[in-house]
C-alpha cells in the first residue's frame, strides 16, 4: 500500500528563531500590528510503501528522529497517513 505522510518540523520552543522573528517584524511593519510571534519551519511530504497506516507513520517518525529533524534544536509532528 502506498501512503502519503505530512511532517512539520519547527524550531523547539524557547530556542531563538531569527527567521521567524524577522518575518514577524516585517509583518508588523506592514501594519499587521497584532502579530505576536511567527515560527518558521519545514513541511515535508513523504510518500512511501508500507503495510499499514500505522506502519507508515512509525517509519516516518523514525526518519524524523534520524534525519528530518535535529533533536537538539527542532521538534516535529507527524501527520496522519493518507493512502496515496
Amino acid at each position: 500500500m502506498k501512503y502519503r505522510v505530512q511532517v512539520e518540523v519547527l524550531p523547539r520552543r524557547g530556542i531563538l528563531d531569527p527567521q521567524g522573528r524577522a518575518v514577524a517584524d516585517a509583518l508588523r511593519t506592514l501594519g499587521f500590528a497584532d502579530v505576536e510571534e511567527v515560527h518558521l519551519g519545514r513541511h515535508l511530504v513523504v510518500e512511501l510503501a508500507a503495510a499499514s497506516a500505522d506502519a507508515a507513520r512509525a517509519s516516518v517518525t523514525a526518519m524524523c528522529e534520524r534525519l528530518l529533524a535535529n533533536p537538539v534544536t527542532e521538534q516535529f509532528v507527524v501527520g496522519a497517513a493518507e493512502t496515496a
Binding site: P11, I15, P18, Q19, V72, T73
Partner: peptide, 16 residues
C-alpha cells in the same frame, strides 16, 4: 555536530 562527532548544534545566526 550532525554526525554526533561533536556535541551541540549550530543554528541560524541571530542576525543573519
Amino acid at each position: 555536530c550532525e554526525a554526533h562527532l561533536l556535541p551541540g548544534a549550530l543554528l541560524p545566526n541571530d542576525a543573519g
